[in-house]
């Protein structure tokens, strides 16, 4: 049994960490980009960003004034039980979100879409979103918070099998061009591409590819992993850098996730996780120990399974 008090306390810490501490994988990726960037203005921007991450950590203040829209991804081992059940869990995550908004402080970004009502705590109808995943075996819960910012950088196109890789590349470049100009996507970004599913799932896959995978990670399908390398290179060859200035740092990394789709289509989505790639993760075990990390490790073999039954013993033997 996982204690609800421990969940809320950990969630509060994660809100703070996500807003203030840039994840190491993104920082390493940006430093690598800064070391090869030769555009005058782009280089200046990247150096300023590196100083900004330091300032945020030193002062314990949010790295960006737009602190994004906090949301939660929750994963559990198959044997996990939560004190008070899933309703108590959701209440704890909503409380942590509201408290951290006032505590860090975060910007109260969440408003009603029509009436613009702002509770000043980032909580409201459907906010924060809480999404779930499960893993075979184990008694633990992973709390993952993502504070993705920005109104720009995500898009969707219905492609068809006949469009092939050429159509995929076109939409990828179109998205980077459209949202990269004037730096609206706050690049260099972790670009997530979703391929397949229905429209909503396609968006979800792309979003998760950008926010739930780290810089340097690769899809377990070697051919998709090759595409990720190629697309990173392609995005950085446009000639556009930070803020849309002349440069070559557009994509810190490109992550692709796929899901089975309708036989007639090949839906595609593109997402950009910005210069403030805010995510923080902790695993709470049933004995109350907490391990913090920055890799959500969401896309396990189980999450990408394509068989009817899950039989790890048989899978391993093959």
């Amino acid at each position: 049994m996982i204690s609800i008090e421990k969940i809320e306390e950990t969630a509060l810490t994660l809100m703070d960490k996500a807003a203030i501490e840039i994840p190491q994988d993104y920082l390493d990726g940006l430093k690598a980009a800064a070391s090869t960037e030769d555009g005058d203005l782009s280089s200046f921007v990247l150096q300023a960003m590196l100083e900004n991450y330091e300032a945020a950590k030193e002062d314990r203040r949010a790295m960006c004034g737009d602190t994004g829209v906090p949301r939660w991804f929750v994963k559990m081992g198959n044997e996990t039980q939560i004190e008070g059940g899933p309703i108590a869990l959701e209440a704890a995550l909503r409380r942590a979100t509201a408290k951290a908004t006032n505590g860090v402080p975060l910007r109260p970004n969440r408003v009603h879409p029509l009436w613009r009502t702002d509770h000043n705590n980032n909580v409201g109808i459907g906010a924060p979103e809480i999404e779930y995943g499960y893993e075979p075996g184990g008694e633990w819960i992973d709390l993952i918070t993502v504070h993705k910012g920005g109104l720009f950088g995500s898009d969707y196109r219905m492609l068809f099998p006949s469009d092939g890789i050429e159509g995929i590349k076109r939409f990828y470049l179109d998205s980077l061009m459209a949202f990269g100009k004037r730096g609206l996507a706050c690049q260099p970004a972790i670009i997530g591409i979703g391929l397949g599913g229905s429209k909503d799932i396609c968006m979800t896959l792309g979003k998760r590819a950008s926010v739930l995978r780290t810089v340097g990670s690769r899809n377990s399908d070697p051919k998709i992993a090759e595409m990720e390398d190629e697309f990173k290179e392609l995005g950085n060859s446009i000639g556009m850098g930070a803020m849309g200035f002349v440069g070559k740092s557009m994509v810190v990394d490109c992550n692709i996730e796929v899901g089975y789709c309708h036989t007639g289509g090949m839906p595609m989505s593109v997402h950009a996780f910005c210069l403030s790639s805010r995510r923080a993760v902790a695993r709470i075990h049933s004995d109350g120990t907490v391990e913090h990390r920055t890799d959500p490790d969401w896309f396990t073999d189980y999450q990408r399974r394509d068989t009817v039954e899950w039989n790890p013993v048989r899978e391993a033997a093959e």
């Binding site: 300032a55 960006c64 004034g65 737009d66 803020m243």
Partner: peptide
């Protein structure tokens, strides 16, 4: 610059002098 040198800009705040219309418009 960035965008998002929020912490650097935050350091440049000497003082928040006032906030107007919070009740009407929200924070």
């Amino acid at each position: 610059v960035g965008y998002g040198t929020g912490a650097l800009l935050g350091r440049g705040i000497e003082k928040v002098e006032a906030v107007h219309w919070v009740d009407e418009l929200g924070l």
